[in-house]
Amino acid sequence: MSDDEQHNQVFEQANAGASTTFPMQCSALRKNGHVVIKGRPCKIVEMSTSKTGKHGHAKVHLVAIDIFTAKKMEDISPSTHNMDVPHVRRNEYQLVNIDDGFLNLMSQDGASKDDVKVPEGELGAQIQADFEEGKDLLVTIVSAMGEEQAISFKEAPKGN
């Protein structure tokens, strides 16, 4: 094989390299910020830092709530180590229809989105009730690490 041939590689797949998380030093994390604990995107509700011990590092104790399941998670990490922080996005969509347990949504630019489930519990029941009353609703969808979920809604202002 010549030198030329070994550099001719075929890549079957490529992506834009947009990661679902980014690293941040543990000591730079803040309350109400986000962090990944046990592979889940969480919102930090409590943080405390212990003093440096006999062998070096100060430890940061994090208490966080999973943004999708609302489960409480805890983690302890040296303050100098990096932790993953999820890219969390919130978008508002116009509710067009509710079909088979899924929300049919439309973004500001007219793109349709119909892969978000009606949320469980009170929020889902309230969205359905208001939609059946014929109200125009804007649903807020939060997405992080390949998951998304409706977290709130409001009545759309008249005149749109």
Rank of each mutant, 00 (worst) to 15 (best):
4 D>S: 09
4 D>I: 13
5 E>C: 03
6 Q>S: 12
6 Q>K: 11
7 H>E: 15
10 V>P: 04
16 A>F: 12
17 G>N: 04
17 G>V: 05
24 M>P: 00
25 Q>D: 03
26 C>S: 15
29 L>E: 01
33 G>T: 09
33 G>W: 08
36 V>M: 10
38 K>F: 07
39 G>R: 05
42 C>V: 09
45 V>L: 08
49 T>E: 13
51 K>P: 04
54 K>C: 11
54 K>G: 14
55 H>K: 15
56 G>W: 01
65 I>M: 12
65 I>W: 05
67 I>D: 06
69 T>Y: 00
69 T>L: 01
70 A>K: 13
70 A>S: 13
71 K>W: 01
74 E>F: 00
74 E>I: 03
75 D>H: 08
84 D>C: 00
85 V>D: 09
87 H>E: 01
88 V>Y: 04
89 R>K: 12
91 N>A: 10
91 N>V: 05
94 Q>G: 01
97 N>A: 15
100 D>G: 07
101 G>Y: 10
103 L>Y: 10
105 L>Q: 03
105 L>Y: 02
106 M>V: 01
106 M>S: 01
112 S>K: 11
114 D>Y: 02
116 V>G: 05
117 K>Q: 11
119 P>G: 05
121 G>T: 05
123 L>Q: 02
123 L>F: 12
123 L>D: 04
126 Q>G: 01
131 F>E: 07
131 F>Q: 09
133 E>G: 05
134 G>K: 02
136 D>C: 09
136 D>Q: 13
139 V>F: 10
141 I>S: 03
142 V>Y: 00
144 A>N: 03
146 G>K: 12
148 E>N: 15
149 Q>P: 04
150 A>D: 07
156 A>R: 11
157 P>F: 00
158 K>N: 09
160 N>C: 04
